[in-house]
Nucleic acid binder design. Structure first.
Length: 580
RNA sequence: GCGCCCGUAGCUCAGCUGGAUAGAGCAACGCCCUUCUAAGGCGUUGGUCGAAGGUUCGAAUCCUUCCGGGUGCGCCA
């Protein structure tokens, strides 16, 4: 159910019949003001310009051929050639009734499902997850959820960093600790940060340790059994840590979704041979380099992309090329979405250009590097601890829950301690996620505890509260909301505004999916909750003087609001509760 | 130096492929609880959309230049 799509189809047909060449944009949008109707077709003006005719006359021709009698009660031309559409209340009622009967709220599945590989989260297993991993993880997760909701086949890939140079250092350190008989679980790897720091210190300071570390990298990557055994011990612990964070975050990633860098190790030689055979990569200063004219500077000097180090070692460039091959050629992906920090834009640009030339990416595969901005502190600089250190993601989430607990403690609720703790968890985590997801993916944003947990404005708590307010009505009236089948009557302006908003879920999800931007869903849910609050104040439901048919109609609207909020928040990975 | 991103109300942010009077939230001020959860609602105040040109019937949006900020640019990931 997508009003906009319906109107676009109808507008296209009418524009064709009016003699406008195909491909002209009908420019359908929701109207900005009530007096302009509910939706509008703005394409007449653009088309008139191309045809050098009078836009108002052309708009009239379009209206003459426009068959919207099933959905609209009135169409009119306004201004220089806007076509305003006033939707029929019965159309809204019937559409809402259909949505109310449908588990998926009348959001249709894609007629031609795509196979979409989504690369997200991708922590470095040498260290604990930190705030820098938050955005990739939750943006990727919500896009994945939305894709699946629309019926696409998604392959989650957690491209974990488990194979870099630093692992030789970590293995060497681990081996020494084990030889000293130190217990692995409780001491050595209990705190990854400390472990990493100790290893790094020895790498920098201790005589001979660095050489040993480098030697271990080579041995590891060439399949040495002993090194691999130690490496596995380390990776297991590290993966366990990230799983705890995912669970805390309510993110759908599991161990099965791990497709780490090491997974491509066996393919790297083949990739380099291929690039050399095709003369895409050439030797330069001992390294294998791809020179990209597409990214040349003004002097014509091509961009440099190193795919193999002078000593023969591989880099993350090599791994990313192998990943292209795997995803496009082996998995047959229609789309590849990669959620990585914006600072890696050039790198992924180079990867795509090289992979396309080498046939590692099929033409049919859309390669979509979806960068995101940085989380900033209140000073406008990258978010750090007071002492300037990196903030661990686990710590951030615990603080969110603790702050939410304090907030909730101020309120009388009659709920048990366990219920309150559960609510605090959902509110705290939800607040962090919503604050992040509601910002445009590509922009840097300022992290602020007070505004995200303020329970006012566009926050997770506001949306969760709106949900509990709806649910409270059903609880109060002792009504099973799943059994509602009453006829919906759209009479009050607050009801109409709410009705149209409810019917825009599919439109919003499509935009979110095509652009990989969860913030549009965040904005939509806030608008929905806000319209519900207005409706709630203006339209009584359970009062004695409300006629039963009006009451029942409004109850269906309430149920749709609750289901849409719950579904939408679920697609963001944010949980709701019945009471708060 | 070159490339990419950004500059919208006091603050935090939207603004989709150019469309009607640039929108929210916070903050400030004023109303609304004997009434379905006031963690709410209604209203007021507040913007030369960084600057200057250009394209157009129409520009926050597209193009050019400049100013200001961020970020990246041969063997890290």
């Amino acid at each position: 159910m997508n009003i906009k799509t319906i109107l676009i189809e109808k507008a296209n047909a009418a524009m064709g019949a009016a003699g406008i060449p195909e491909g002209s944009n009908p420019a359908v949008t929701q109207s900005t003001r009530p007096q302009f109707g509910d939706y509008q077709i703005n394409g007449a003006m653009g088309a008139a310009k191309a045809l050098k005719t009078n836009p108002r006359e052309l708009a009239q021709k379009i209206i003459d051929n426009l068959d919207v009698s099933d959905i609209a009660e009135k169409t009119e031309i306004a201004g220089p050639g806007f076509i305003n559409i006033h939707l029929k209340p019965e159309f809204l009622s019937n559409s809402l009734a259909a949505a109310n009967q449908d588990q998926k709220l009348a959001v249709a599945e894609h007629s031609q499902p795509q196979k979409v590989v989504v690369d997200f989260s991708s922590p470095n297993l040498a260290k604990e997850m930190h705030v820098g991993h938050l955005r990739s993880t939750i943006i990727g997760d919500s896009v994945v959820r939305a894709l699946e909701f629309r019926g696409d086949t998604v392959v989650r890939q957690n491209h974990m960093g488990d194979w870099g140079t630093q692992f030789g250092m970590l293995i060497a350190h681990l081996e020494d600790l084990l030889n000293q008989g130190i217990d692995l679980e409780s001491v050595a790897l209990a705190d990854l940060e400390t472990f990493y720091r100790d290893a790094k210190k020895r790498f920098d300071d201790e005589e001979g340790f660095a050489d040993k570390a480098r030697n271990y990298v080579v041995k590891l990557q060439s399949g040495d059994a002993h090194c691999e055994k130690l490496w596995r011990l380390f990776i297991d612990t590290s993966v366990k840590h990230s799983e705890e964070v995912y669970q805390r975050l309510n993110v759908t990633l599991t161990r099965n979704d791990i497709m780490a860098e090491s997974a491509y190790n066996g393919e790297l030689n083949t990739i380099i041979s291929l690039l050399k055979d095709k003369n895409i990569a050439v030797e330069d200063q001992g390294a294998q380099v791809v020179f990209l004219d597409e990214l040349a500077n003004k002097d014509g000097e091509p961009s440099v992309f190193i795919v193999q180090k002078s000593g023969g070692g591989f880099l993350y460039a090599t791994t990313d090329l192998a990943a292209c091959d795997y995803r496009s050629n082996k998995l047959g992906a229609d789309r590849i979405l990669i959620f990585v920090d914006a600072r890696q834009s050039l790198h992924f640009n180079q990867v795509e250009l090289t992979a396309r030339k080498a046939g590692l990416l099929r033409d049919e595969t859309s390669y979509e590097f979806s960068p995101f901005g940085t989380m900033m502190g209140s000073d406008g600089k990258p978010f750090k601890t007071r002492t300037g250190g990196t903030v661990k993601l686990a710590d951030l989430l615990e603080e969110a829950i603790s702050r939410a607990t304090d907030k909730l403690a101020d309120r009388e609720s009659g709920l048990s301690d366990t219920e309150r703790a559960e609510i605090a968890r959902k509110v705290g985590i939800g607040a962090v996620k919503y604050a992040d997801l509601s910002k445009h993916r590509t922009s840097d944003y300022i992290f602020n505890w007070d505004s995200m947990l303020s329970f006012e404005g566009a926050t997770a708590p506001y949306l969760q509260y709106a949900y509990t307010r709806v649910r409270s009505i059903f609880r109060k009236a002792d009504i099973d909301s799943s059994a509602l089948t009453a006829t919906i009557n759209i009479e009050q302006p607050q009801e109409k505004a709410l009705a149209i908003k409810l019917l825009q879920l599919e439109e919003v999800l499509d935009l979110m999916i095509s652009e990989a931007t969860p913030h549009v869903l965040c904005g939509y849910l806030y608008e929905l909750a806000s319209l519900y609050m207005t409706f709630y104040e203006a339209c009584p439901i359970l009062k004695d003087d409300v006629a039963s048919d009006v009451r029942d109609s409004r109850l269906v609207l309430c149920n749709l609001v609750a289901n849409t909020l719950r579904t939408g928040l679920d697609l963001l990975g944010i949980e709701v509760m019945e009471q708060m």
